[in-house]
């Protein structure tokens, strides 16, 4: 059985990364949800991100 079919039988548990409202909608329906406080890597600076990716 694929993991997709396994998912169909399970309780949905969600990590919401981004817009709070999507997470709020899920919580309102009593779906277990963790809302992330997501921030762009390197503080959103493209220059810094490109430097960081070179370090990896």
């Amino acid at each position: 059985m694929s993991n997709i079919n396994e998912l169909f039988g399970k309780e949905l548990k969600v990590i919401n990364m981004g817009l709070d409202s999507f997470g709020d909608d899920l919580k309102e329906q009593n779906i277990k949800t963790v809302q992330m406080r997501w921030r762009p890597p390197a503080g959103g600076s493209k220059k810094m991100m490109s430097l960081l990716s070179k370090l990896k």
Partner: peptide, 22 residues
């Protein structure tokens, strides 16, 4: 509200869906 994906998984270890809108 965890700041990284790893800490989010720690907070909800059996999470089976990630909704991404970043």
């Amino acid at each position: 509200q965890p700041a990284t994906f790893d800490s989010a998984v720690d907070a909800l270890p059996d999470a089976n869906m990630v909704v991404i809108s970043v």
